[in-house]
Amino acid sequence: MKTNNKFRPYLIRLGIVFGLSVLLVVAFNEIVYLFQKSEYDRAPKTIKLVIPEGTADQIESGIDVESIPEELVFVIGDTLEVENLDQVSHQLGPIWVPPNSTGSLVMERANNYAYSCSFQTSRYLGLDVREPTTLRTRLIGLGFAAPTLTALLFLYSLLVFPIDKKTKSDEMKNKPVSSKTI
């Protein structure tokens, strides 16, 4: 019990510093998140592209297919669905679609890909798969930052506000014996 009493002020200090650290990290994280938040910090969804009929002929003639962007941005878990209404098969990098069908693929890895593509005049299409900043990623950030900040603040607080090592039992021991004997 004596040992517990000895460490109690340190534990209380550690608890207070931990609470403070969590609050600081959450506040800092959320402020940064608010400023840096983009439209790609979202839950996965299905993104649909339609290859219109006659696309192959248009491409052959060097005409751009306006409905299809040259760069596509996804977040991990998004499903890219390509519907091919043309009379020939088309490919968009990892997806190959026969005529009058739909090809779909779940984007699983964050990366920047340049794929060959049969429905762009440039014959290439950029796929940017990003890891979204979600509540989970923010919580992971908190998990990393809070203990580190706690350790630093705790040590710093010990230097700036040292804990008085005298406990109540020590004080009792040090009370003058004379007062009792008189």
């Binding site: 190959w96 679609v97 005529p99 069908s101 090809g103 779909s104 779940v106």
Partner: peptide
């Protein structure tokens, strides 16, 4: 079951 390859749907 979710297929992990690029799925062709409807099958042709």
């Amino acid at each position: 079951y979710t297929y992990q390859g690029s799925l062709i749907d409807p099958p042709v």
